[in-house]
């Protein structure tokens, strides 16, 4: 009989303790970010999709060695280059990133020895069409420089 009432009492007390916790939380400020109206800045090391790095002349640093293409686990990268007459280095003519397959592992950036690739800070990517995620990075570079 004593345990019966003890159980009821301790049970009730535990319920009130729980209610006290939520009561206190009620008056604390909100912690969420109102996404479309407020956005967060991404940290320095954030990995968005890859982006080409340009040199001083606004041309990509890439020398079309193809290491990133080989390092990629999912074969997202297609690149091509030509060697213009009288030049030593190849010039990048095409750099397509198939972001639908990319898993942002960073193998391409790591494998690059010429400081030609970096992660962007882009995280607002949404589309209903698959083609929107096949990025022409060379085009994006030109757009940025405009």
């Amino acid at each position: 009989m004593v345990t019966y009432f003890k159980d009821i009492y301790s049970g009730l007390v535990s319920l009130f303790i729980g209610m006290e916790v939520t009561f206190k939380e009620f008056f604390k400020p909100t912690v969420t970010v109102q996404y479309p109206y407020e956005t967060l800045t991404m940290t320095e090391k954030y990995r968005g999709h890859v982006e080409l790095i340009e040199n001083d002349e606004g041309k990509p640093n890439c020398i079309v060695c193809g290491l990133c293409q080989r390092a990629c686990p999912s074969a997202c990268i297609t690149l091509a280059g030509v060697k213009p007459e009288g030049e030593k280095k190849k010039v990048l003519t095409k750099y397509i990133l198939d972001f639908t397959r990319c898993s942002l592992c960073g193998s391409c950036v790591e494998s690059c020895n010429f400081n030609a690739l970096e992660f962007s800070k882009e995280y607002n990517l949404a589309s209903t069409r698959r083609e929107d995620f096949i990025f022409d990075l060379l085009q994006r570079l030109e757009d940025r420089n405009k």
Binding site: T22, E25, F26, K28, P29, T30, V31, T32, Q34
Partner: peptide, 13 residues
């Protein structure tokens, strides 16, 4: 709104 306040969200706003 009340639930949101308890959970420290703004709720429908």
């Amino acid at each position: 709104r009340g639930a949101a306040r308890i959970q420290r969200r703004p709720g429908p706003n």
